[in-house]
Design a protein around this nucleic acid. Sequence first.
DNA 1: GTGGTCTAGACCACC
DNA 2: GTGGTCTAGACCACA
Lengths: 120, 120, 120, 120
Amino acid sequence: MTDFSNTKSIYLQIVEIVKKRIITDKYTEQERIPSVRELAVELQVNPNTCVRAFEVLSRDNIIINKRGVGYFVNSGAKLVILEDKRKKFIVDELPRVVNNMKILNISLDDFMHIYNDSQF
Amino acid sequence: MTDFSNTKSIYLQIVEIVKKRIITDKYTEQERIPSVRELAVELQVNPNTCVRAFEVLSRDNIIINKRGVGYFVNSGAKLVILEDKRKKFIVDELPRVVNNMKILNISLDDFMHIYNDSQF
Amino acid sequence: MTDFSNTKSIYLQIVEIVKKRIITDKYTEQERIPSVRELAVELQVNPNTCVRAFEVLSRDNIIINKRGVGYFVNSGAKLVILEDKRKKFIVDELPRVVNNMKILNISLDDFMHIYNDSQF
Amino acid sequence: MTDFSNTKSIYLQIVEIVKKRIITDKYTEQERIPSVRELAVELQVNPNTCVRAFEVLSRDNIIINKRGVGYFVNSGAKLVILEDKRKKFIVDELPRVVNNMKILNISLDDFMHIYNDSQF
DNA sequence: GTGGTCTAGACCACC
DNA sequence: GTGGTCTAGACCACA
């Protein structure tokens, strides 16, 4: 799951893992997610690294801390994550992609082939 | 040109700059490119940083060294760079993009709007 | 260990030292090797010089980096090193040697004498 | 002939070229060899680089300078070159080769195959 | 603690 | 002049 030789830092990888689990309903809203220690064991990382990931998620209101109990998925988190991804994707990524297509001479047909081939 | 606040390391930015200049025929094949010292002055970086960039480009056969003379754009470099970018884009990036479109519920119409709006 | 008067650059000497230690099981597969700083102290060189050696070894998949932890000997590294040396020797070196023997009029008997004299 | 991207310096490559031409009787003893300028044109190098090569050859008594006339192959040069190569080969190279064979588990049979396959 | 990067300055062989 | 290497010292993100 986590990739130690990746250029992306581990804690950001963990952030993405947790988000994905929320989107895919592995972690459902209002429910408690695994503790820092549990997650650290599962992902084979240092607990501190999970702490850092939880800080980020907490700051973004994806999860909230109940003192002495644990972290919980915030209500509306799933929607927030999806909207955020959507916005970033449309504003940042797509224009870049479109530009590259034109520079690299990749036609709309080429694109459509990949689009149609891709299983959801 | 070089962006010091970028997360991407300077020497890798320089690699991209040189590649871009080859693609855009600023540096033409078989011709000598500026020396590490000249480029360092132009880009306002330490010569060693340019040396590192040249190492990468040399390893990838984009440029070749003539001892005591300087670096030259390898023949075929332009094509190699473009093909490499194209391949990476089609194999790595496009499938991810298409997948995200489907997950994030972005229609082909949305895509076409951005496509048509983008000036080349 | 490192030879400063050698024409071969220090960082490439370090590459060879590390490879040798892997071959001789001083550094075993999957295990962590010393940090750049530790090795620098041992070999009496600047840490940066070790960094450079590690870059080469890493590029060749001899060692792999675990972010924030250190470098580890890749599984299969020992075999890869030996096979690589063997291949280079047979393909590049031996034919040249044989050719020189014929040009320089060195007989198989001469060769056998040296072969038998050499202690392993 | 000359290899600019080789690790071996150009002037030493030229030294070897000249020696080879003497061994193969392209340059015969007591005869004049091409001037620095002529050789530089032929090998596409800077004349200074040839000068340096001639210095080495001169120092080793392979060629001798006749002021205002040019360089000449010294009498006995061919023999000297061959003997020198022979000595270096037996003293420096063969023991190293034999050692590598044993370390890399290359049998005498393997060696003989290459020996017999090599055309002179 | 780990490695990654950058700078400044030096020395070198080479062309 | 060219690149190649090395050092010393610094700062950074990361685990």
